[in-house]
Amino acid sequence: MLGVTFISFLLMVYFGPDKTYELLGKNPTEEQIREVRHELGYDRPFLVRYGDYLRELVTFDLGLSDSNGEPVAAILARTLPVSLALVLPGFVIGNLLGLALGLLAAWYRGKWLDKLVMSASVVGMSISFIVIIIGLQILLCTPYGLNLFPVRGWQVDGPGSYLYYVTVPTLALVLVTLGYNTRFYRAVMAEEIERDHIRTLRAYGASPAEQLFKHVLKNSLVPVLTRIMFSIPFVVISGSLLLESYFGIPGIGLVTFNAITSGDQPILKAVVGLTGILFVVALMINDMLYSLVDPRIARP
């Protein structure tokens, strides 16, 4: 956590763009430069500035956006729910579907079904996110395809319009993550199915459903949960960055994208800090879930 903020501070604030000259006119005097630098706090020691940044994060007093003067905290509060609503369905479906396909492939390991699923997942892994997005747009959003959904935008005011706007981004997210998810889950499940206690179950007449859904699944929950928890921060930030900037959806990704292109430091700082927080929260929930799932961790 400290590490994340430290590196991001180092890169974006300390070595980041110097606002001094933007605020001043041409040919500023030495005196003016010093004044502005002082105002911006550039002249203070490195560690003090880093401390200030940490305090801002902890107190959620994130300052004002450079580009429109709106409080950063307010921007985050407005955009974060949009991003969650955008990526959540795709994230859930992508993982559930990957889990199901991985389980199926692992159960029929070496059979044609396994080979089919695995080949499909390699194909899925080989298509770039961008290609998937543009391809889906052509197929679903333009007169050259089905023309069912909007090309871009986000005017959600109810379940109907939510579905209308969320479908294509969700499909894109599912398609791009499915290949990776399926491969990962298959590897985990195949290992679990090989274990001795699954053989015991078979020797005692357990049905495939009982073996898979009760025992294989529960035993593999640790790696599965780890993957899910740790991908949350990335999907929320990175996934939405791309989807929102492409589909023009006013979520945190678009805000970040605009901040990147315009060099809006307070926002970038806040987003990075937010990611750090998300990461730590994911870590904590993960540890908590571990002890719920695996008795060997719960009772030392």
Binding site: F6, M12, F15, P233, I237, V271, V272, T275
Partner: peptide
């Protein structure tokens, strides 16, 4: 730390730096 920073943000930060 590096694994925890969202990559595209990091890339943007490097681009700035």
């Amino acid at each position: 730390v590096l694994d925890a920073i969202p990559f595209y943000l990091f890339a943007a930060a490097v681009a700035f730096a």
